[in-house]
């Protein structure tokens, strides 16, 4: 079997990079069958849209992409990324399995020669970071200028009563410095990886869901494999995902410790406040995805 070309955005850091934890275990598993894996880290094969496109053409065999890139090819994929759908990795995996979510995504993604094999978890659950004040109730975010990643985030942040503003991730540190935005919606692991610990002052854990990175395989590449080789790859993906999950669970407290040590105060939500965020967010699910999809996935939500 030829060398397997793998590309991703992060660095080859087994301690902090969730995607590389998956890739490393994936490569280890394949090496048992004498298969060599060539890793292109740090966007050297191009940014999200480029790696996505090259995977679609079979130039990259395995790409770890973000949810946004996947949604460009599969509208249905947005459904799995709705806010407050699940609270942790285990319930996300259960929801994907029970809803047969991957099949629906692959139905759409196969038009572009892609096959989503699963997800690599970033570690930890989504919450709200800000520079301004401790947030422990939904009223605290009223009129807060939050950085939104995209229109979907604008929709649910508005539903919380905040004032979202779209800022690209590259500009977010500047936006936090200058007050263009005072906070954003992410897990601690992302803030640590982006080196933003010193820029932020407060973190409110919301258990709004894990952060899945998308494991995309090239259809061209996968379908050219022999049956035996395909089993190796499937096993390697399964092994990589398992190692990633164990790492994510183990690392979540570590990332929280890093942000606390870096001077970020953790301010938990008061009794009953998470329910208000859940309610406000769920009320706009059908503005983010088609109403029937929202109703469908709600059956598998926590």
């Amino acid at each position: 079997m030829d060398d397997v070309i793998v590309a991703f955005a992060g660095t080859e850091d087994l301690k902090n990079d969730a995607e590389y934890v998956f890739i490393h275990a994936f490569a280890e598993s394949l090496s048992e069958h004498g298969v060599n894996v060539v890793v292109h880290p740090s966007n050297t094969m191009g940014k999200e849209s480029d790696r996505f496109d090259q995977t679609s053409q079979g130039l990259i065999a395995v790409n770890i992409g973000n949810g946004g890139a996947l949604m460009k090819a599969s509208k249905w994929a947005s459904t799995l990324f709705l806010p407050f759908l699940t609270s942790d990795e285990a319930s996300f995996d259960r929801m994907v399995a029970e809803s047969k979510g991957l099949d629906r995504i692959n139905e759409e993604a196969s038009r572009l020669g892609l096959r989503v094999a699963g997800f690599a978890m970033r570690g930890g659950s989504l919450g709200l970071f800000n520079t301004e004040k401790p947030v422990s109730t939904i009223d605290d975010v009223a009129d807060m200028r939050l950085r939104a990643q995209n229109g979907d985030q604008v929709t649910f942040m508005s539903a919380w009563g905040a004032k979202p503003t779209v800022v690209s991730w590259a500009e977010t540190p500047n936006a936090l410095q200058t007050g263009v935005a005072v906070g954003h919606y992410n897990p601690p692991s992302t803030v640590v990886a982006a080196g933003q610990v010193e820029l932020l002052n407060y973190f409110t854990p919301m258990n709004a869901g894990p952060v899945p990175k998308v494991i995309m395989l090239s259809d061209d590449w996968y379908s050219m494999l022999s049956d035996e080789e395909r089993t190796w790859v499937d096993d390697a993906v399964a092994h990589g995902v398992a190692v990633n999950r164990a790492w994510a669970v183990e690392q979540a407290p570590y990332f929280e410790q890093v942000i606390v040590d870096g001077g970020i105060e953790i301010t938990p939500l008061e009794e009953g406040e998470r329910a208000k965020f859940v309610e406000a967010s769920r009320a706009v699910w059908d503005q983010i995805v088609p109403a029937e999809d929202a109703a469908f996935i709600a059956k598998f939500a926590d």
Binding site: G46, K47, S49, D50, D53, Q54, Q57, L59
Partner: peptide
């Protein structure tokens, strides 16, 4: 991959 790269 080049047309995509020219655009992106």
């Amino acid at each position: 991959a080049l047309p995509q790269r020219a655009m992106s």
